[in-house]
């Protein structure tokens, strides 16, 4: 079972935060095929958010083939996120760590790094790279 939490100051829309948290749990293996996601009512009772937000997040996960809604029963995990992703993650993380060390050596501080990363991410999203 997964317990959602919200970062209210993050600027990321609530439904996307829920989507990301399910994906993260799938990557980490804390959610596995067959596991049930909490009902919309359970989520709104703990987070005080609009139930349509939860349904929207679940629809998005369903559209991506990660979960399936079974009428009258709930929403269940269909498949995990491929195991290779974890190895990829480790490799990319090493690369990013090397980049951070390099940027620090060049005199960038925490804020500079974050700003640079955010700008590159945003540009990539605009160009359809990410």
């Amino acid at each position: 079972m997964i317990e959602f939490n919200l970062d209210r100051g993050s600027g990321v829309s609530t439904y996307l935060q829920l989507v990301h948290q399910v994906k993260q749990a799938l990557r980490l293996g804390t959610l596995r095929p067959g596991d049930q996601l909490p009902t919309a009512r359970e989520v709104v009772e703990s987070l005080a958010i609009n139930p349509n937000t939860v349904l929207k997040a679940y629809r998005e996960l369903e559209r991506e083939g990660l979960v399936e809604g079974r009428p009258g029963m709930g929403t269940f995990v269909r498949q995990g996120i491929a195991g290779a992703t974890l190895a990829e993650h480790t490799r990319l993380r090493r690369g990013l760590e090397a980049w951070v060390r390099e940027a620090r050596a060049a005199g960038l501080d925490q804020e500079d790094l974050r700003a640079l990363f955010t700008v590159v991410l945003a540009d990539a999203a605009r160009e359809g790279v990410a």
């Binding site: 209210r8 609530t14 009512r41 709104v44 009772e45 005080a48 958010i49 609009n50 139930p51």
Partner: peptide, 28 residues
């Protein structure tokens, strides 16, 4: 707000609520 949201999740209910504090309404 939690208990009102749970009511909305449980059945077909429309809610109209007024508030001065917009941050209270953002998620709900």
């Amino acid at each position: 707000m939690r208990s009102i949201m749970a009511e909305v999740a449980g059945r077909e209910l429309t809610v109209l609520l007024s508030s001065h504090v917009v941050s209270d309404l953002e998620e709900t």
